[in-house]
Nucleic acid binder design. Structure first.
Lengths: 170, 170
DNA sequence: CTTGGAAAGTCAACAAGACTGACATAAACT
DNA sequence: AGTTTATGTCAGTCTTGTTGACTTTCCAAG
């Protein structure tokens, strides 16, 4: 255990980390309320389009990695193909997502946002980034680093590896 | 780390915080994946009881504040009373929650966990605390402080006030 | 005291978005 | 040729949200 030293004197590591059940409970509730705040803005926007969080997630990751396959998206989102397919079909029908037959492997479908899809993605991510930016600014750079460090630890190990194999940590 | 160039000169705080869209996007995805990890353990446990996340939330907050009214819980959870009522009815029927008619105002119902309810709450929160404890330990005390600071900033202001009026600062 | 409105809670019906299972098609692999 | 893989679809179920209509209880104005 790599324990960072604090400026003030401390006892055992439990004390250092304030790992009482009460402290942990506060952390748990913080996650709950913060996640709700985090999704509030996009949820409001999506109501105007008769879409839901599922559509947002699909749009987000297609935007991040244009040309990814349905299977790639399935791995990221962790839902069933039937569930994803309903959402994807709507987005393709509505002209927000384009599904092109793969070039090397023609069983695959490569997914891309259309101009309209890009426009919605911008609207959604702008709102979410604004909230994130405000939270970061108010908290300060040291806090942001800690925020990221703890959150990374909370991700399921298998998923964390996948992310590191592409996103490239800071 | 590929640093993006901005079109305008950065203000001091922005420079410090690296608030590029790419950095913010990483924060957004971190929230998404971390929240999924955060709820994974309870979700697994709840399957054995044919309950869902909604039941977990109700149980959690009844345990935290025994005797709270349905309206109190409604304010915390931010769902409709009809939605909460279904969940609550199941829990009462199954003998995990007791609903006592209010003493001063008999329209109200004060909610308490039964021994069985307390047992399930323990099982769920033990799993969640274990994950939180591990994340905290791996990240270190300074990171934990930053984590809490940023998350607090992400909560909707109205909700944050409510929490401060009871939970007390760290 | 009565009455009318507001508040708390309940019942019923419906919708979004997860799930499973079965099956179809096309392409790739062996 | 036969099997596996990638994708898509149909049908049905479950959880958990929603709205609308309703009862019971409380309180306050007449």
């Amino acid at each position: 255990m790599h324990s960072k030293r604090l400026s003030r004197p401390m006892g055992r590591s439990e004390q250092l980390l304030f790992l009482t059940d009460e402290q942990l409970r506060q952390g748990i509730e913080l996650m709950f309320f913060a996640y709700r705040g985090f999704t509030a803005d996009p949820d409001r926007i999506l109501e105007n389009y008769a879409y839901g969080r599922a559509h947002h997630r699909a749009i987000h990751f297609i935007n991040r990695t244009p040309g990814l396959t349905v299977n790639d998206l399935l791995d990221i989102l962790g839902v069933t193909k039937q569930s994803l397919n309903r959402v994807l079909r709507q987005l393709v029908t509505d002209g927000l997502v384009e599904s092109r037959v793969g070039t090397q492997d023609r069983r695959q479908r490569n997914l891309y946002l259309t101009d309209e899809g890009i426009a919605l993605e911008r609207e959604l991510s702008a709102a979410q980034r604004a909230r994130m930016r405000k939270a970061y600014s108010n908290a300060g750079p040291e806090a942001v680093h800690g925020f990221r460090t703890v959150l990374e630890q909370m991700i399921d190990p298998a998923m964390r590896e996948k992310l590191l194999n592409e996103g490239g940590g800071s």
